[in-house]
Amino acid sequence: MGKSIMRSRLFWPIMVLILILLINLFFDSSFLSIEVRNGRLTGSIIDILNRGAPLMLISIGMTLVIATKGIDLSVGSVIAMSGAIGAMSVANAETDGLGPLFTAIALALVISTLVGGWNGLLVSRIGVQPIVATLILMVAGRGVAQLITGGQITTVYYDPYNFIGGGYLLALPFSVFIVAFVLLLAVLITRKTALGLFIESVGSNPDASRLAGINSKNIMLMVYLFSGFCAGVGGLILSSNVMSADGNNAGLWFELDAILAVVIGGTSLMGGRFYLMGTIIGALIIQSLTTTIYSIGVPAETNLVVKAVVVLIVCLLQSPEFRSKVFGTGKLKKTKEQKESEGVTLS
């Protein structure tokens, strides 16, 4: 029983998350308490959930992309574009009606999804490597976002816009519901239909999948569309949180955080199996790490060093060579895994 829990992919990520929360509790004894204020739940935990919402969303999209052995570097720029489109289209709203809000949401999401589709077309149809294909938009997308905002931070004075990222529903931040909805959607589609299996099979071997009758190209296109959509929602939340459009800094470094969250969650960068719940926990770990670093008074910039060390450790633990060299145990199982991973590289 104990062993089966330990073997679960989620065991180590959850342990790390608990450890970080305990460290926080050590420095601030009221860390875990949740209070009701004005009919809203407040507390550090709620705060982490709320602030981590964009990262969780983007990481969900990134998980599926990485599962197909791809990567999406453009999410940070898509966040900036989506936020800019959303905020700029309500910046001059004269009424407080809901019309402009829905227009803004629809416009931002449609364009983000199309942008994701552009990445998908480059990868699936033209056959460009994912890193390179999405690099184009990572560079140009931020330029477009700056073009939309005119290079300045535009403040929004249209109250309903604040609801997306700052609103509350049933005493919980509304953004948490958005994450829950998208996560549920992703889990249902990938685990209750065959699509999840298709994604995993494309990630392990696109050619074999095609021969088995799976339309690999469309599967790839689909995951990039979804990643663009997720980044779009994340961008709306971020820009609504601060009620402004900022083409320069919105979503900066998000692609790296999202990749980090996916890797911590146990999904391998080599493609194949993916773990959506692991990703969510990975995103929460990153967010609580950030909160911790702020709250115990270490300079916020050290965050980057901590993240670098975490990425390296996680990657080393995933590397069969490292495990067999350092732990040296379970050789039989390791060699089998080694063969599997080599099989993937060869393909």
Partner: peptide, 27 residues
């Protein structure tokens, strides 16, 4: 060395290096 000896992807190793170097300069 990390890329070669532990067969890690150059992309992820240098990504960590990027974080590390920028973080250290802030330190």
């Amino acid at each position: 060395s990390l890329i070669h000896f532990y067969n890690l992807q150059p992309f992820i190793v240098t990504l960590a290096g990027m974080f590390l170097a920028r973080g250290l300069s802030y330190v």
